[in-house]
Design a protein around this nucleic acid. Structure first.
Lengths: 247, 247
DNA sequence: TCGTGTGATTGATATGAGTCAATCGATCCG
DNA sequence: CGGATCGATTGACTCATATCAATCACACGA
């Protein structure tokens, strides 16, 4: 159990340990001290690679693992009985995918790589066991899951209360702050997803998304060339995202 | 630790133990054997009563406890920065409220009693500790939270993909199945919430809700007099709720 | 180099649900 | 009992966004 690796050998595995992962301050290790991190290291199945469009897991198949995004991006979606897809989330590096099926036996959603993506696979059975041993990890898991609930509630608010413009402003700002957390530019980035995905996620038609993008561009709020996005007027976007505030 | 109560004394406390709660097969005890249930009993703050309209907890106040609904009903909602309310869920007896704030320090939502409601208060600190000791409870908590995520995703689907009629049909059926779980009539019940709440929850105007109710009534799908609802044609409602299935 | 396909944009039109406004019904209370 | 209040219903009109349809633009393989 305490088979930790001597320090002087660590550099050789730096790429494949939570300790040295550049995302350790965003991901699960966030909750652990270095001793406990080794325990986590032992159960993580590192560096699984998926190409754009490949499924990481599929709705209604047995649920065995959660996945932490290391690089790239993932979308999750549920397929309704009537056959249409609703994207339920976008996941960026450092974020944990699959929590909507925790302690269930089948996946409640499908996860698909939006671009070439590497993930760490964390078998649930061992994750639960570990969480049982390490109170900090259990606490963190609860935290992540409740955050996921709040995110989803936030989406519900967007969908039921906000206009197309407000929804898109909100999405752009959400992405922005997530890039910022990773020390990347919060104002200039590449959208990992297609217009279609944005539309689906926000409950809009693709055409509407397109129109809003050009409108934003004309108003000088953003500069967009395909997936290359520059947020020019953050302030204005923030006001926009807040919606029709009537005092 | 093993201070279980002799069997012959149990009846005297039947009203205030998880063991003898009629909801034990729906609620947290579901995950526990009778020994462990006593541990839970010790930390639960039983029989807190709230009158209609009273807040069980309030958004942005310190988060200390989750609440299990014993009787009555609760709605949870988030208030956006722009000041409007979005109801995020209705909670019926046997259901756990407050999971969206687990392991956070402030409440992410407000919970309000829809009618005279009694709840069991479960302090989170002790709940986490207990979950740490009892793997079954931890597992169940993960399960409940992931279920909450799925519910919220389901709501997102409704809000972004379905018409007013489909949303209302879906809500009625959801309530129906929850009454059924409690061995109550799945076809004849009293709505715990006002039209206004339904509208808010489903992202509709009150007027629309009203119109759909009367339309359903005219089509012979339901019989409604105020909050008294009878589901006359379950089949048709189910087809309706599935939405525009195009084969 | 040229199709060919996929995703994005733009325009014209239709519609589901929101908004505004009036009425109704029930409950409450002086 | 009669006025007041609150929730629910119904009607008339409006509007944001979907839908339908065409074009555009870029990437890719032959």
């Amino acid at each position: 159990m305490n088979q930790s690796i001597p320090v002087n050998q660590m550099s050789s595995i730096s790429k494949s340990s939570c300790q040295h992962c550049s995302l350790s301050n965003l991901c699960l290790p966030l909750a652990l001290d270095s001793n406990d991190m080794n325990r986590l290291d032992e159960v993580v199945n590192r560096d699984r690679i998926f190409n754009r469009g490949e499924q990481v897991f599929t709705q209604s198949t047995p649920f065995r693992s959660c996945f932490a995004v290391k690089s790239g991006a993932i979308k999750t979606s549920v397929i309704t009985e009537s056959g249409d897809e609703q994207i339920t989330g976008f996941f960026m590096p450092g974020e944990l995918v699959g929590l909507d099926s925790m302690s269930d036996d089948i996946h409640a959603s499908t996860a698909k790589a939006l671009e070439r993506t590497s993930v760490c696979e964390i078998p649930v059975e061992q994750l639960e066991q570990l969480a049982h041993t390490l109170p900090g990890l259990q606490h963190h898991m609860f935290h992540l899951m409740s955050q996921e609930i709040r995110n989803s509630h936030q989406l519900s608010v967007l969908l039921s209360k906000n206009t197309a413009e407000e929804r898109i402003a909100a999405l752009l700002l959400s992405l922005s702050s997530r890039f910022q957390r990773r020390k990347l530019s919060p104002t200039h980035f590449n959208l990992p997803m297609a217009r279609n995905d944005i539309a689906n996620f926000l409950g809009l038609a693709v055409e509407t998304v397109s129109r809003v993008f050009t409108r934003f561009q004309n108003q000088g709020l953003i500069r967009a060339r395909g997936r290359d996005i520059e947020l020019v007027d953050l302030e204005a976007l923030q006001t926009m995202a807040l919606g029709n505030a009537q005092p």
